[in-house]
């Protein structure tokens, strides 16, 4: 026992044991990173395509291609984002228990109980202390991600439907039937643009809540998405 390692202040309670868990595997972390970058690029360029801002004035068209570049970034990000998402679905079947597709649907009684728990202690804060902190996603977050996936799907379908008019490749062409069903490209474009705002709102709430959990629980929520490790209290397992 070294004398230099005295506690800064006396411990009030019985000391607690934490152990380290490898929660987010590398593919999951890569998915998250690629998804985040692609989504930000898609939102920014998508907003600009819908509402182009004046960058140049009194120039000639043959000197510039900036709107073309904005659209190019949007389309490239969209392809990356789509295949990244497809990969994540695959990983939901082969990855570890925290990556499993089962997390995203409140199928078990335990998950529904957990949703109520998170709703009352973290979102609305009727209750102050959460005794059942989840290791992976909490069930409410996971269910929210499921809803996000539905918006992913809507954006993929409407986006490729719009893109199909400028492309002869196979993937976009698979979605051109959606245009007449939705009532023309103007309507598809409107919904595609509107759905973008869901992702803006999602990002605000998602980033805030990640910091919130890290701050309240002190278990490495933020660093876990970089390194994959989280910490869990040993006595939580007995509850």
């Amino acid at each position: 026992m070294s004398t230099t390692l005295q506690p800064a202040r006396p411990t009030m309670k019985k000391p607690v044991d934490y152990y380290r868990i490898y929660v987010w595997e590398l593919p999951v972390r890569l998915y998250h990173g690629i998804n985040a970058v692609a989504m930000i690029l898609l939102c920014v360029t998508g907003y600009l395509i819908g509402e182009p801002h004046r960058v140049f004035y009194a120039a000639e068209a043959y000197q510039l291609y900036w709107f073309g570049i904005v659209r190019f970034i949007h389309f490239v990000s969209a392809f990356i984002w789509t295949f990244n998402f497809a990969f994540r679905i695959y990983w939901g079947f082969v990855g570890n228990r925290y990556a499993s597709w089962r997390n995203y649907f409140p199928i078990t009684k335990q998950q529904r109980h957990d949703i109520w728990n998170v709703l009352t202690t973290d979102v609305l804060q009727f209750r102050v202390k959460n005794d059942e902190i989840d290791i992976g996603h909490n069930s409410l977050a996971a269910f929210t991600y499921f809803i996000t996936f539905l918006f992913f799907l809507a954006q993929v379908v409407t986006g490729f439907a719009l893109y199909s008019s400028m492309s002869t490749s196979a993937l976009p062409s698979m979605f051109n039937w959606i245009v007449p069903i939705m009532g023309g490209e103007a309507v598809v474009r409107f919904w595609h643009h509107l759905f973008m705002w869901f992702f803006v709102v999602f990002m605000i709430v998602h980033i805030y809540l990640a910091f919130y959990h890290d701050y309240i629980e002190g278990r490495g929520t933020i660093s876990s998405i970089v390194g994959g490790w989280k910490f869990h209290r040993e006595d939580d397992d007995n509850k």
């Binding site: 506690p7 000391p15 804060q125 102050v128 202390k129 805030y208 701050y215 309240i216 002190g218």
Partner: peptide, 24 residues
Amino acid sequence: AHAVVTNVRKKSVIADVHTEDMKE
């Protein structure tokens, strides 16, 4: 607003986390 409310409502939880830090 949620962040502000958290700091008020969860004062005890935050204090708990801070006192857990050292272990013999």
